[in-house]
Design a protein around this nucleic acid. Structure first.
Lengths: 203, 203, 203, 203
DNA sequence: CATGAATGAGATTTCATTCAT
DNA sequence: TATGAATGAAATCTCATTCAT
């Protein structure tokens, strides 16, 4: 009934988030029960509420933090990249793929459980997604201005590229035949070509 | 209690499938309640079981039929296409995009609710997906053999292409600025280029 | 799982209302659990919802029906009464006391659980209470006009009288020393005197 | 920081009782949560237990103290009153009404939440209530012996009078048209008349 | 074919309370 | 004295499903 010797609030909270992410990834937000989550963490269901406001709030926090980290990380990656669009696009793709393949659970949750978010939080996440998409759109338009890319519709192209890149999470296995870097490189090449950019002296 | 005059079993069954598809699309399989479905159809929950075996079976049927129709339709599209790989890939892409954009609900359900399928049916659907993917993989390898495509890994490329194409369903709006054919054409161009095939003067 | 042979919806619904009334009376609305109610009725908690919309709705229905019956019954009693105010007031009191003592549970619930009603229903019950109070206020004012009663404030007097009369429910025991009619008669005399009406020839 | 040891604790305990009384009055004992109470006081729920034994004990204390104060106050009022029954009854009524109208929350809690008291404490409060009722019964019987009152059943009359007087708490508003003294006077007149005592020159 | 009624299981969340710190 | 964390129990209510009618 009282505090178990050695228990630690911060550790429990982190365990809840970790287990919650894994369970939502594996079974879906609706399908995951809080009994299940509590059992995974090693506490009783009622104790969850010492650390989360509600199931919905847990979902929001998980997605929100992932998106915030993604935005920050992508921004940093672009800041370090060279100024010309093709190199920047390559940097963006390499970063996106490597980052996503290292966070499959977060990516699934952030993409497939968006619809489970209720209005107050839903809009905030959508705004974050828009900001991320805007980074790529701007990049593509820069390339078009530079004359490096041939793209009929930069918004459509951005969506197509993001879908392609994020799709890696559905089939990639860390213990498979390809490393994350290899997958990233393959996609970088495909993306640049899909934008009409002929790499190296090939053209 | 009895049958309402003029009611028609087949029509009711079809209505259930239609409403089920829409509701699963809108809210997710787990989140859709059978009460909700029954209400949408205009019958009582218990009556659903005169037309479906179970909620799980309804989901399987919906996905299975979609996949079967997709396979048949894609096969037919390729049969009508010219023999060389670039033209066939173009035909495949145009068909995939147009077909998917006309069936957004089915596509969402078949892709995002796969995890809600239980083992007996799950494997069957996965087999169908593999068969569809195999069509594209074969096509890409044909192009490589013909010397028309430069692709480091045809399986990875197939996944990347399918993710890009299917991703259209997440943002396309029928009443938007682009027609389905336009979106299909944009993607056909991107896909062919991403395979290292230079359109226009190179062909 | 299916319908138990001999089960009857109307009978179950009535049993729920009867048991609900008794339990709310005995333990209070908040303190009564739906498990308890279901057990009393002989069904499982989930089955309650085939007959009630919610716990709150059950409470409202119980109170609403009691108030409606009380209003109708009191109106009928006054219609049969002679025209002069003292006789009418006597009739009102006799009716009120006899009616209330025969329905102690309903009276308790309608008076003490009013605060548990949520806004939509709360106002409707308050309106019914006001209508009932208005009957007595009108009666007292009629008596004042006739010169039979001496009352400084008819609204205060009405509240005082109703409190006195309804209070009988808190101590009356059907198996006690006094019959309902005797209690009613005692209160009729007290009420009439409290209004300054000297019975008979002032005795 | 210079705080006098204990002064904070006593203040906190008093704040808990004050807030507890208000919350139980407003929402009922069962409906009031200790989280709510703690929030009102500005501490965490666990800290409540440094000041109260349990929720049940808090309820008992609140009621017990109210009843003790009421008994003491009424006893004092009667000690100062003249010896004859009518004057004493008038004094009792004036005191009861004025005292109650100044303590509506305590009165509600002591009357409507009695049923929430568990056996050990319940009996003690009931004994206090009996003692208070006995004061009035004795007074009425004194009046009958003096020939001043005509009462068929002094116990029933006592209950009726107390119900009437205490009922004032349900409708009286301090900012309304009548002062507490006026309400008390109106009721004193009604009570005396209801006992068959004709005031002023009527006798 | 449709349905009312019933149900076991479980949903998320709150309850009062405890206890080590 | 105050509190964060934990808990058993229970809260109301929904779930998919069944079956006699």
């Amino acid at each position: 009934m009282g505090r178990i010797a050695g228990s630690d609030g911060a550790r429990t909270a982190a365990a809840i988030r970790r287990a919650g992410l894994r369970l939502i990834h594996r079974r879906g937000y609706e399908a995951m029960g809080l009994r299940e989550l509590a059992a995974e963490v090693g506490i009783r269901p009622a104790s969850l509420y010492n650390h989360i406001g509600s199931k919905q709030e847990l979902l929001f926090d998980l997605i929100h933090e992932h998106m915030a980290a993604l935005l920050a990380s992508a921004t940093a990656a672009l800041e370090e990249a060279p100024p010309r669009a093709p190199a920047r696009l390559r940097a963006f793709v390499l970063h996106h793929v490597a980052y996503h393949l290292g966070r499959k659970a977060e990516v699934f949750v952030a993409n497939f459980e968006l619809r489970a978010l209720e209005p107050p939080g839903y809009e905030r996440i959508v705004a974050q997604r828009r900001a991320y998409e805007a980074m790529l759109v701007a990049l593509l338009e820069q390339g078009v201005e530079e004359g490096a890319f041939r793209i009929p519709d930069s918004r459509v192209a951005a969506y197509a590229i993001l879908a392609m890149l994020t799709g890696t999470c559905t089939w990639y296995r860390p213990d498979g035949r390809l490393s994350r870097a290899q997958v990233a490189a393959i996609h970088a090449a495909m993306v640049l070509r899909s934008c009409g950019y002929a790499e190296g002296g090939e053209e």
